[in-house]
Structure formats: structure tokens, C-alpha cells
Design a protein around this nucleic acid. Structure first.
Lengths: 253, 253
DNA sequence: GCGCGCCCTTGATCCGGATCAAGAGGCGCG
DNA sequence: CGCGCCTCTTGATCCGGATCAAGGGCGCGC
């Protein structure tokens, strides 16, 4: 399990790290930024939200943030690094459920079963904000903005979960995956066209329900078609519109 | 679009209809029963929850409960009948997202986008309870039980959405589908082994990401193996354990 | 009653992606 | 430095399920 922290051969772009924030501004790129803005900076409620946060990490590549069956006590926002969530089915096969970038939230699917239904594994050295869920719920009851923000986070994840469900070709899946990743990086203020794939081909394949060989082949084909430039895990999207068009049936709008 | 309401050739079992309830008891099989029980019957809060409900229907087979793009104002609990939710992608292909039985809730994935991201279409004559979402949110802020119930509903749906995502054989999907349907009927107090499939083979196929022909073939095979008895849309599960075993990799526990 | 359309079933063929196989490149470690 | 492991790539073959095709049953409207 080598550390992904060191730069690779190529000059790596600055590592995506969510803005650290401070008492007054909190993390600007954080998934809860909206909730904070809604109540206005400096209000006592923001201080309360800020207080129930605990910074945890670093987790090195391969380390678990939580494990299947752990009692559910908190949700986590990614501060830096990348995480994958995955389930292991009864036959011992891993199922990658998703990848989470700085500013995104993991653990929401643990609310109902009251224990984590999946593992969360760091793909590179990562840091998190830990939000105690009981405290968060109590705060939500007093702050409508926080409550509706939680509802929206949950509902949003519902929407994205149904995306990878359809029956689509390997090309469509791959194109949509890369486009989506780029968009999410862009949303958080990083480059949406040039970034590191922090997960292995095997993880991508598993997530997209393809074989690792197929992922490799599709990436090669995209490279030959001039859609992307890819060397190891370093990716450059040369034709974002073309890529988006291939994956259009899986992508919103 | 013929009405599914009339009984078929076979003597149909009593049509699943969620208990109508009254001011004191509300719908016992309803998805919100838990929230009501949590605060105790007869309390003023229950009256409030009961008050924000509006009964709507009947919707005949093929009619829309809501359409993609409709502004989101309310969620719906199925009171009687069955609904499918589906999206139509940019190529005009339909994607069935789910089937909802009496007592289950539709519309949760509309919270984030603030408009319905899918269509909801009655598969047989159906009735609903309509919960105004703004009113529900306001109530949730005052009643922790309602709030946590909403969180749990959302989180639960997150869990089930990731089920059909994996790459599984047609047999596994079909077995898991039938087992799941049976379980859900059983949870609501109906027979879990004998019921009507209220959706067409085409809808099942679309939902499971299979061809309609494959669904037909798998059902025939299951019948020949003595796992089920099926005549048209009337289904009897003869070997629940066997069926569950085939679909085990998709099923919880 | 008769014909038409829809849903369902079953058979034949085809194809995308899985699987099997082999080899290359990089990295950590002894 | 050399070895072994792991990841990635590329080629060859295979298979499950899609697609194409045909036919039956039933409900409904004329």
C-alpha cells in the first residue's frame, strides 16, 4: 500500500485540498458551506455548527475511515484526499459504491440502518471533518437551514445513485465517469480538465461494473481518438464536449 | 391502457390496500406509522401530522401522479395500488427506477432538485396520501421524531438504490426482485408468497436492466424448477428459501 | 362474432464485454 | 542491483443476454 502522497513522474497539479477555513468563514468548498451561508456568517448558529465538527486524520492510503457494521454516530466531510466506499457481498466480492472528493460527504446511507452499511477506504492520504450526527440532528431541529441542507444532501445522493444503474455501454459509462469527476473537481474550485485519478483501474472498473481490462481498453481508445491524454493516473481531458456527448445519456442536463 | 382493477381469470387474493386508519390510529401500514407511534397516539402532534395530509386519487392505470419537471411541493405515500417511477433519457429511452407498494413513499428524490426528476405512473387504480413538504419540514423542526423519520426514509432509499447497481446474472436479479417484492408485501401485512405482479414483463425487464424476453425465460425456468408458480401476473412463490438463495448476493442479510 | 393490438412466450442468431493469457513497466525491499 | 509484486496494457477466445423473428392467448372495440 504505497503512499499516493508523493508526486508521480509528471509535474502534478496542486493537490486538491478543501479550504481550511476559520471560525469566521468555515470551509468554503465544504458541503455544508451552503447551510452556513444561509444563516449568514458570524451568527451564533454558525459557531454551533463549527463547534460540533471534529477534524480527523490523516488516514493513509488503504486505511479505513469506517467499516461495515460500525455503529453510526457521525457523518464525514472529505477535507483533503479521496475515499472510496464499498460493500463486500456474501460471496466476498467487493462492490465499489462511490468515490468522494474534497468537500463531499460520506456516511449518509448509515442513518437508516444505524450502522455503516459499507466500508470507507482512503485512496490517498486524507483528512476529514467529523460531524456528530446526534448533535447535527439537534442543531437541525433548531436551524431550518441545516435541516433542509441535510435533506438536500440526502436527496442529491439519491439522484446520483440511480445514474450508474442503467444499462449503458462501456464507452458511455467511462465518458460519463470522467466528465462527472471533472465537474465535481470544478465545482470545488479545482481544474475540471486536468487531475489525478486517485483510484486504480480496478476500482474504476468495479465502480462502473466493467472488467479492469475493459477500462484499460476504453481509455486507450479515448486517447487514440484525441478525447483525453492519460499517463498512468494523470489525466487531461482534451475534448470535454466530446466526452460529455458520449456519456450524455447518463449525465444530468 | 386497460384497467388493472378488475380481477383476472384466477380468483385474485384481496387487493392490497393500506389500512385507511382514522384520527386516532392513522394508517397502520403507512410509512409514517413509525413517526406517529414514536410520539404516541392522541397527542396534539399526531393531529398536526394528520392535518397536513391530503388524500388524492383515484389515479387509473397509466395516469401520472407527477411528471418530470413538475415543481416539488409534496411527497406521496401510496395508500392503495402500485406506482412505477421512471426517467426518460435524452434518447427517449425509458428507465424504470422503482415500484412502490401501499405504505411506501415516492418523491423523496425531488427534494434536492426542487422538481420531480422522474415520472410517477400508476400501474393500477391507486390512491395516495399527499404530504405538503414545506409543512412537513416545519413540523419536522418541531418534532424530532418526524425529522429523524424523514432522515431514515431518505437513507433507506439510498440503501436500496445501490442494490440493483451491481453486475449480477439475470437469475440473481429476478430472484432478488421477487423475494424483495414478497418481503415488502409481507412487511405491510399482505401475503409475501402469493400476489399479483402489477407491472408488465417489460417494466420488470426495464427495471432489472434485462430484455423482456429474458424476464420471460427466467420466469419459465424458475417455474420448471418448481421455485414459483406463475400464470400471467399471478405469482406464487413455492420455494421462498430457494429463491432467496439464488438472489442472496443482492439481498440484505 | 370477428379482427386487431398488446402482452407474453419461445426459438435462432449475434455481439459486447468478461475471461483467459501473456507481457511490460514501476516501485519497494532485501 | 536484482527480485518479486502489483498495476496496467494488449491480444485471443468465450459466453450471457440482447436482438431478431415468429406465434399464441386474451381483451376490447366495431
Amino acid at each position: 500500500m504505497r503512499s499516493e502522497n508523493q508526486a508521480g513522474r509528471l509535474p502534478a497539479p496542486p493537490s486538491p485540498i478543501a479550504d481550511d477555513g476559520d471560525e469566521a468563514h468555515f470551509c468554503r468548498t465544504c458541503a455544508f458551506a451552503g447551510a452556513c451561508q444561509a444563516v449568514g456568517y458570524g451568527k451564533p448558529e454558525l459557531r454551533e455548527l463549527h463547534c460540533l465538527v471534529e477534524h480527523v486524520g490523516p488516514f493513509r492510503s488503504g486505511e479505513h475511515v469506517f467499516r461495515t457494521g460500525n455503529p453510526f454516530r457521525a457523518i464525514f466531510a472529505v477535507r483533503s484526499g479521496t475515499v472510496k466506499t464499498s460493500m463486500v457481498d456474501k460471496e466476498g466480492r467487493e462492490q465499489v459504491l462511490g468515490f468522494y472528493l474534497p468537500g463531499e460527504v460520506i456516511g449518509l446511507n448509515a442513518i437508516y440502518p444505524e450502522q455503516f452499511p459499507c466500508d470507507a477506504i482512503a485512496l490517498e492520504t486524507s483528512h476529514f471533518c467529523r460531524f456528530s450526527f446526534p448533535a447535527m440532528s439537534a442543531l437541525a431541529a433548531r436551524m431550518p437551514a441545516v435541516q433542509s441542507h441535510l435533506f438536500r444532501l440526502l436527496s442529491k445522493e439519491l439522484g446520483s445513485a440511480s445514474l450508474l444503474a442503467g444499462d449503458h455501454s462501456a464507452d458511455e459509462r467511462m465518458a460519463a465517469f470522467l466528465t462527472d469527476l471533472g465537474q465535481r473537481y470544478a465545482t470545488r474550485g479545482f481544474s475540471g480538465t486536468e487531475f489525478q485519478l486517485s483510484m486504480s483501474r480496478g476500482d474504476i472498473a468495479n465502480y462502473l461494473r466493467l472488467a479492469a481490462e475493459t477500462v484499460s481498453r476504453v481509455l486507450s481508445r479515448f486517447r487514440n481518438q484525441g478525447l483525453i491524454q492519460v499517463e498512468g493516473r494523470q489525466l487531461l481531458i482534451r475534448d470535454p464536449a466530446g466526452l460529455r456527448h458520449i456519456g450524455r445519456s447518463l449525465l444530468p442536463d
